[in-house]
């Protein structure tokens, strides 16, 4: 096995090159794709190598996702680029009432191999309408799969599985992580949907995260180690289907858990995790499960305010410490 260091963007582009070469029904559709190889340069090389299969559209999100749905129903494997994940609101009918429902309401007559690629997240001073993390909305819709990768290697392995999947996949990739680098295996590989990864072994507390939350946990675990707290990191990678087995076996070991995500707190995926954890492990838990998340306001523009609202490494450290000290105080 050979590893190279790639950015998340490069990993995405490499994966899509491989998939588009492998299967000529795969194409990418969205706004402003060819001029700069995607708004964030995330599709580098694809416009040159697949000029007929990376397609610029008018600013018409409902029609764009409609093209995805209709072409998925008729033999293609579309990848729809939503420009900013915030714009899911402009095509909610197509995502929620159509893509998610068509296979089911027609009694399983068809498959819906559609990937909706959504750059999400805050921290780039883009303010309220370009900074959201909306994955929990889609977890709540039966019929959609939800993938939120963190490291470049995850991006590559998961997007390849998403493209090959016969069901609709919402793929959220954090804008702040596009330039993050990490080792990516040179040989072809897939990461199955619905498989979490234990990315750091630890015995005192389980940090459950996905997307940008992973990097907060990674930094927090280093700090916690200096305070004699040994944190285990479970990167969910896929929220639906959810690998609860990995979460449960980790917490059975640590008996404490903290959920970490960049989305705002109330009604976030952390709440779902808390519910599932207490249902399975109530008697075993040594402390209430803590949630780390963004503040419940639209993301403000001014840097100091945005930084204040986003979840930080210190928040994860504090939540983990309080989970551990809760045990001590009982």
């Amino acid at each position: 096995m050979t590893e190279r260091i790639l950015s998340a963007s490069a990993a995405l582009s490499e994966a899509l090159h491989e998939e588009m070469k492998r299967d000529e029904t795969v194409f990418i559709l969205g706004e402003d794709l060819t001029a700069h190889a995607g708004l964030f340069g995330q599709f580098k090389g694809l416009p040159e190598n697949f000029p007929d299969r990376i397609i610029d559209t008018p600013i018409s999100e409902a029609a764009i996702v409609g093209v995805g749905v209709g072409s998925a129903l008729t033999g293609m494997r579309p990848i729809v680029d939503l420009h900013f994940s915030d714009f899911v609101t402009c095509c909610m009918d197509e995502l929620v009432n159509q893509a998610a429902k068509i296979r089911y309401m027609f009694g399983g007559q068809v498959k819906m191999p559609l990937v909706v690629w959504c750059p999400d997240g805050a921290g780039i001073r883009a303010a309220a309408q370009h900074s959201q993390s909306l994955e929990a909305w889609f977890v709540h819709v039966p019929g959609l799969k939800v993938v939120v990768p963190s490291e470049p290697a995850d991006v590559k392995g998961l997007i390849k599985s998403a493209v090959r999947d016969d069901d609709p996949v919402m793929f959220f990739q954090n804008k702040n992580l596009f330039s993050r680098q990490g080792p990516v295996q040179k040989e072809e590989y897939l990461i199955p949907l619905g498989k979490a990864a234990v990315k750091r072994q630890g015995k005192d507390v389980t940090l459950i995260c996905y997307g940008s939350g992973y990097y907060l946990c990674l930094e927090a675990a280093k700090i916690l180690a200096g305070q004699n707290i040994d944190a285990e990191i479970v990167d969910l990678r896929t929220l639906k289907p959810l690998d609860m087995d990995t979460v449960i076996s980790s917490i059975k070991k640590t008996r404490r858990a903290v959920t970490v995500h960049e989305a705002c707190l109330t009604g976030g995926f952390g709440a779902e995790l808390c519910a599932l954890i207490q249902e399975e492990l109530f008697d075993l838990l040594k402390a209430p499960v803590k949630r780390v998340a963004a503040r419940d306001v639209p993301m403000p523009f001014s840097p100091a305010m945005e930084d204040f609202c986003m979840p930080k490494v210190a928040d994860v450290v504090e939540a983990a410490r309080s989970a551990v000290s809760w045990t001590a105080s009982r």
Partner: peptide, 17 residues
């Protein structure tokens, strides 16, 4: 009007294929 965006996909797929 739910069918209209989808028909665009069917039409586009015809063109691609």
């Amino acid at each position: 009007a739910g069918g209209l965006p989808i028909i665009a996909g069917a039409g586009f797929s015809i063109k691609m294929r």
